[in-house]
Amino acid sequence: MKPGIGQYTILGVLAIGFLYPIWWAISSSFKPPNDIVTDPLTLSGPTLHNYQAMFADVPIGTGFANTALVLVVKGAMTMVFCPLAGYAFAKFTFPGKNVLFGVVLLTLMLPTLVLIIPLLLEMSALGWVNTYQALILPGSIDAFSIFWMRQTIAAIPTELIDAGRVDGASELGIFVRVVLPVIRPGLAALAVLTTMNVYNDFVWPVVAVNDTEHQTLQVVLSTLAQNITGNRIGSDFTTVWGELLAAGSVAMVPLLVIFVLLQRHFINGILAGSVKG
Rank of each mutant, 00 (worst) to 15 (best):
P3W: 12
Q7N: 06
I10V: 15
G17K: 09
W24S: 02
A25M: 15
S27A: 11
S27V: 13
S28D: 05
I36Q: 01
P46T: 10
P46A: 06
Q52C: 00
Q52P: 01
A53W: 12
I60S: 02
I60A: 10
N66E: 05
A68K: 06
L71G: 04
L71H: 07
K74R: 13
V80C: 04
F81T: 01
L84I: 15
G86T: 09
F89S: 02
A90D: 05
K91W: 08
L108N: 09
L115E: 08
L119C: 07
G127Q: 06
P138G: 04
G139H: 05
F144E: 06
S145H: 11
F147G: 01
W148E: 00
A155N: 07
I161A: 01
I161D: 01
V166R: 00
A169N: 07
G173F: 12
F175A: 01
R177Y: 15
V178L: 08
V182R: 05
I183K: 04
G186C: 09
T195E: 11
M196G: 03
N197K: 14
Y199I: 01
V203A: 08
L224W: 11
T229Q: 13
G234K: 15
D236M: 09
V240R: 03
A246N: 08
A247G: 13
L255P: 00
Q263S: 08
N268M: 09
S274E: 08
S274W: 11
